[in-house]
Design a protein around this nucleic acid. Structure first.
Length: 480
RNA sequence: GGCCUUAUCGUCUAACGGUUAGGACGGAGCCCUCUCAAGGCUCAAAUACGGGUUCGAUUCCCGUUAAGGCUACCA
């Protein structure tokens, strides 16, 4: 059996779409699982959509996600170049072959002509193929027009009355009638190929054995199959993946939330979590496990466990998955990941050991690294204000004197461990004849300004005696 | 409109003819507890509809409905 070769073929639009990430992932996983080759090919045949730096960004983002390709731009493997705009000559040659064998023809319709056909079609409610008039044009006239520089495209000739069927790996047998297909443009008037021509030529030349792509390509697959036949090539196997959906079940798009992988990266989502999450959008292991590393997915992934129906991209579950991965990460790694956020907030001179303590205390309470700094801001700065709700609930007229008492007990402490602080607080509470909570809540308010967070004693121990006492005193004067 | 695809809790999904239709996220409640989390336990929540086939349909077939995709000199 020949080596499995798959490809991810995005167009460089500026960012990597999460749907693209999933397609790339499934291709990558299929390649790894089958000891095959994962190719990255850039489909940049639309000059008008060229975006500066998009290719570099695409590669950087794929790497961030952990999806290393085996062949692609900057990583030649003998089937390159891997950027379509560098393969124009090949497409031209192949179009000539089709022209010569009568499988394709020149057409000279203007955009206005096409628009007219479109209108006519809508009105008549039947397929209109007026562009075929060019097929009846005498060869000499075609030559004359071409010589005169008349804008022309090359269209493929669709046979009539034929059924084109193929077996899709995820959907089973799919059939189309050639009568419902139109004469697809293969070569645009600017000399660039369309996707249909380029992807067939490239997949063949690059030895692609399995085309794993989104369901939006299903309707054009018969055109591709026909092209393989026209060229006399063996077609690859196809697997059309279910679409990723917006909450309203339309195709996942901008305007209804973030679709760029880069956005999720910027927000502090882990590549492991995002990959794990999209992996499960359309695939499942067959048992009840949900948390997977890339390596585990590489071992488990099979196309026969890919579903057929579209999947809504559920941000809540992604959040949850991110926290799962966060909890599995070593504190030292979290420290590295948190550094940029610290710097971003202008917080400097935080010793690693201190930051590690913060991480330890907050690890069960945050979803993303940035929150160690935002949620845990009180680890770095004295509170500027105090939560009104908490104040109302825990700061009574008699509270101040009690806090003063516990403040002096804490101030006397020689050692400032959580245990020492706890016994000082509880002893004071007992002496006052009140529950420990009656002291704990106001203390927390003075120390953090908020009513939620890690255990008070551990929190104070990490802050240190000096800071804790300063904040309690400050709180006393601010809260009365 | 035409062609194609899809259809199990709100969402992601399991069950490849026989299960009290399972799990997860989210939601509700309880426990734990100095708060918030985390954790543990419990609850609510689904086979779109109608016909077949079969001793028996979530599962197979047909239809209906609904949703989506495609219908570009974009990919």
């Amino acid at each position: 059996m020949s080596t499995v070769r798959v490809r991810f073929a995005p167009s460089p639009t500026g960012y990597l779409h999460v749907g693209g990430l999933r397609t790339a992932l499934y291709n990558y996983l299929f390649a790894r699982r089958n000891k095959g080759v994962f190719v990255l090919r850039i489909e940049d045949t639309d000059r008008s959509r060229y975006v500066e730096g998009a290719v570099e960004n695409l590669i950087r983002t794929l790497r961030w996600a952990g999806l290393e390709f085996d062949e692609g731009p900057g990583k030649e493997g003998g089937a390159g170049p891997y950027i379509q705009s560098e393969r124009i000559a090949t497409y031209r040659t192949h179009v000539e072959m089709l022209l010569a064998s009568g499988k394709a023809y020149y057409a000279f319709d203007t955009p206005e002509d096409l628009e007219g056909m479109r209108k006519k079609q809508e009105k008549l409610q039947v397929a209109v193929r007026d562009y075929r008039r060019a097929m009846d044009m005498p060869a000499e006239e075609v030559q004359r027009k071409l010589a005169a520089g008349t804008p022309a495209v090359v269209r493929m000739k669709m046979p009539s009355g034929e059924t084109i069927a193929f077996e899709d790996i995820v959907r089973g047998v799919v059939e189309f009638s050639s009568d419902g297909l139109d004469d697809q443009v293969l070569l645009k008037s600017d000399g660039y190929p369309t996707y249909h021509l380029a992807n067939v030529v490239d997949d063949h030349q690059m030895g692609i054995t399995h085309v794993i792509r989104g369901e939006e390509w299903l309707p054009s697959t018969p055109k591709h199959l026909l092209l393989y036949r026209y060229f006399g090539w063996e077609p690859p196997r196809f697997a059309h993946l279910p679409l990723l959906l917006n909450p309203d079940r339309s195709k996942l798009s901008k305007r209804q939330g973030d679709v760029a992988v880069e956005e999720y990266r910027n927000k502090g989502f882990f590549p492991e979590a995002l990959v794990n999450f999209v992996a499960l959008l359309g695939w499942n292991p067959g048992d009840e496990r949900e948390i997977f590393t890339l390596e585990e997915l590489e071992k488990e992934f099979t196309l026969d466990r890919v579903g057929k129906s579209g999947a809504v991209f559920n941000a809540d579950k992604l959040n949850w998955m991110n926290t799962e991965h966060l909890r599995h990460k070593p504190d030292a790694e979290l420290l590295e990941l948190t550094r940029p956020f610290l710097a971003g907030s202008g917080i400097t001179d935080v010793p690693d050991s201190y930051m590690l303590d913060v991480i330890r205390l907050l690890k069960e309470r945050v979803e993303r690294p940035g929150e160690f700094v935002t949620t845990g801001i009180y680890f770095f700065r004295d509170p500027e204000s105090y939560d009104e709700q908490a104040k109302k609930k825990h700061w009574k007229p008699e509270t101040a004197s009690r806090v003063r008492q516990v403040l002096s007990a804490i101030g006397d402490l020689a050692s400032f461990s959580p245990g020492d602080i706890e016994s000082a607080v509880r002893t004071t509470a007992t002496a006052l004849g009140i529950g420990a909570g009656t002291l704990i809540h106001p203390l927390r308010l003075t120390v953090t300004g908020v009513a939620l967070g890690p255990g008070l004693f551990e929190l104070m121990a990490v802050l240190g005696k000096e800071t804790s006492l300063r904040r309690i005193e400050k709180g006393l004067s601010a809260l009365g």
